[in-house]
Design a protein around this nucleic acid. Structure first.
Lengths: 235, 235
DNA sequence: CAACCTGAATTAACACTGTTTACTTTGTCA
DNA sequence: TGACAAAGTAAACAGTGTTAATTCAGGTTG
């Protein structure tokens, strides 16, 4: 891979970008069922088989697209917290709000990201490598934020002895393997907070709170405050 | 609708049942992409257009099938708690474990239920009526359990004044409209607990905890205990 | 009993889909 | 300039949801 890409390689990268843009427009404007090889190629003034020069199948094309969603949401969170004042505690709140805002603003992308794993193949099929890597970068962003929080703000996390042994064993294995400077009690608090944040955002995006809420913003803020309290933070 | 259905109506009901059974087997064993009209009809020894005597489209067939998933999971929860001893507090824990067990045992059905809303149509499309009704029956089961818990066990729910006004207004509207004998503070606690339970189960089923957990059972039990603590219950 | 009608099921067809093969054009590089 | 690889096309195949016209059996009514 040369440092200065050829003219052809630039064209190729531009074409992949256009494929993503067109496929995403179809996904957002006309639904997941409308993003087909022929529809994409039609919008680009090409024929469908030409797309096989860029992806070995439609599934790979979609997984490549979904990986960009992980990166885009992650970058939205990162640029938001970089532009925001305040310490690690305030930054954590801002990051959660930024993730929620992106998800609410991009429901089709959010749904595609989280439904892509189990939708096609049965059984616990291993996720596509590129998608998995993007997901790991995503998780890493929030984990770094939490490590910052733990190191600089003195949040209150439960003592390690409070974590049940079978759970502590798994979390300890993860911490040592990835060199994360966090005690198991703090790691448990991180996963618990993530469960709560994801549950809230997913229910909002999927519309499963409509049965009792017309505008879930207030509920989200209350839940976010509860998460902060759970970590011993003040709003 | 006569009390004693005709012979033809019995045959029709049996056929619909067989359609559901075959479609579900395809969904579970070969993935969501394999449940097609032609595959269903092939397995039943029929032709594809015959299915249009029972459903106006494949989407309607699938929504009818998904509605049975809501009812099945709900009934699994209800029969489990009916056979269990203990007061409302213990029953709530058992109900949460029953829902989790069903979801883990039926990942394809769980995914279909929760991904069906936003997968096909863009925008906030209104859910299909039958599916919506099944979802409401599902929600009602857990809400009744919670009302029982609040009325008989004296759980600790936050005072109504602690609920932010914009959130309290929406919850109060729901409570009065559906004649639920609960204060807003308790209703807020219910929604919060549901957010946490759903988030945990969804992350487990979708495999999004694999990055740090090999067996999420212990994490679920810890989260369930935290939810109980949040409601002022003892395990 | 005969006539009628309704519902179930079929065949044929249409407009799509993902994918493969063979072929042509076009840009790059020695 | 000539050779090579990449990009793109046309044609075809198997499979999809859906519709229209048709046939056949069951139940209802004269």
């Amino acid at each position: 891979m040369p440092a200065t890409p050829n003219r052809r390689e630039r064209l190729r990268a531009a074409t992949i970008g256009e494929i993503h843009a067109v496929a995403r427009r179809l996904l957002v404007q006309e639904g997941a069922g409308a993003v087909t090889l022929r529809a994409i190629s039609r919008d680009m003034g090409m024929t469908a088989p030409a797309l096989y020069r860029y992806y070995p199948s439609l599934d790979d094309l979609l997984h490549g697209l979904y990986a960009t969603f992980y990166d885009e949401s992650r970058q939205h969170v990162e640029t938001t917290i970089e532009a925001a004042p305040g310490g690690p505690g305030a930054r954590m709140f801002i990051a959660c709000r930024a993730l929620r805002a992106w998800s609410i603003d991009h429901p089709a992308e959010f749904t595609a990201m989280f439904a892509s794993r189990a939708s096609v193949k049965p059984g616990g099929a291993a996720p596509e490598p590129g998608l998995h890597a993007a997901g790991m970068r995503f998780a890493d962003t929030f984990l770094r934020l939490f490590v910052d929080l733990w190191q600089h703000d003195g949040i209150v996390t439960p003592p390690d002895a409070d974590v049940p042994p079978p759970l502590a064993a798994q979390l300890t294995a993860f911490l040592t393997q990835h060199h994360v400077p966090l005690p198991v009690g703090a790691m448990h608090a991180f996963v618990s907070a993530w469960v709560r944040l994801f549950g809230m955002i997913a229910l909002e995006v999927f519309g499963y709170l409509h049965f009792c809420l017309t505008d879930s913003q207030a509920m989200f803020e209350a839940e976010l405050a509860a998460i902060g309290r759970q970590l011993g933070l003040e709003p």
